[in-house]
Amino acid sequence: MNFEKESILYGLLYDCPFGQELPGCPFHEIRQLPFEKRYDLAQEMSEQEIDNWLAQHRKCLKSR
């Protein structure tokens, strides 16, 4: 995983950059987990999975 994607992903796993998730946010359930589990999930993601999560985030950004 490259540094830029990793930084964005970990930030999104921690909190919504807008402070308020939209209903149906795909990150919501993951954010409810303890941070160690979120970290482990991120470490196990393939590059394609990361790209998919980041694409969902970009879609949300455009909708705001």
Score class of each variant (00 low, 15 high):
residue 21 E to M: 11
residue 33 L to I: 02
residue 56 Q to W: 14
residue 2 N to L: 03
residue 27 F to D: 02
residue 49 E to L: 01
residue 22 L to F: 05
residue 38 R to M: 06
residue 11 G to L: 04
residue 6 E to P: 00
residue 23 P to H: 10
residue 23 P to Q: 11
residue 46 S to K: 04
residue 13 L to C: 11
residue 26 P to T: 12
residue 11 G to H: 05
residue 56 Q to P: 00
residue 63 S to M: 06
residue 5 K to F: 03
residue 5 K to I: 00
residue 56 Q to E: 14
residue 59 K to C: 01
residue 21 E to N: 05
residue 18 F to R: 15
residue 29 E to P: 01
residue 44 E to D: 09
residue 52 N to K: 15
residue 22 L to K: 15
residue 61 L to R: 12
residue 3 F to D: 05
residue 49 E to W: 06
residue 13 L to F: 15
residue 45 M to T: 06
residue 62 K to F: 12
residue 52 N to E: 14
residue 24 G to H: 12
residue 14 Y to K: 11
residue 53 W to R: 13
residue 21 E to S: 12
residue 33 L to F: 15
residue 62 K to P: 00
residue 63 S to V: 01
residue 37 K to H: 09
residue 32 Q to I: 01
residue 63 S to Q: 06
residue 35 F to R: 13
residue 15 D to H: 08
residue 8 I to N: 02
residue 21 E to P: 06
residue 38 R to V: 02
residue 16 C to N: 12
residue 9 L to P: 05
residue 54 L to V: 04
residue 47 E to M: 03
residue 63 S to H: 07
residue 9 L to N: 07
residue 23 P to F: 12
residue 20 Q to A: 10
residue 22 L to A: 14
residue 56 Q to H: 15
residue 1 M to K: 06
residue 61 L to M: 12
residue 48 Q to S: 09
residue 1 M to Q: 07
residue 45 M to D: 04
residue 36 E to L: 06
residue 25 C to M: 10
residue 14 Y to L: 07
residue 5 K to T: 01
residue 18 F to A: 14
residue 28 H to W: 08
residue 63 S to Y: 09
residue 59 K to V: 02
residue 31 R to V: 03
residue 27 F to E: 04
residue 33 L to K: 15
residue 6 E to R: 14
residue 28 H to D: 06
residue 17 P to A: 04
residue 8 I to M: 12
residue 58 R to L: 05
residue 54 L to C: 07
residue 54 L to H: 06
residue 16 C to K: 07
residue 17 P to C: 07
residue 63 S to I: 04
residue 21 E to C: 15
residue 33 L to E: 13
residue 35 F to Q: 11
residue 9 L to E: 08
residue 48 Q to R: 10
residue 62 K to R: 12
residue 6 E to V: 03
residue 48 Q to G: 04
residue 43 Q to G: 06
residue 48 Q to C: 01
residue 47 E to R: 05
residue 29 E to D: 12
residue 45 M to G: 03
residue 28 H to Y: 14
residue 31 R to E: 01
residue 6 E to S: 14
residue 52 N to S: 11
residue 41 L to A: 05
residue 5 K to R: 11
residue 24 G to F: 13
residue 3 F to K: 06
residue 55 A to R: 12
residue 50 I to C: 05
residue 56 Q to I: 02
residue 13 L to N: 09
residue 64 R to P: 00
residue 24 G to Q: 11
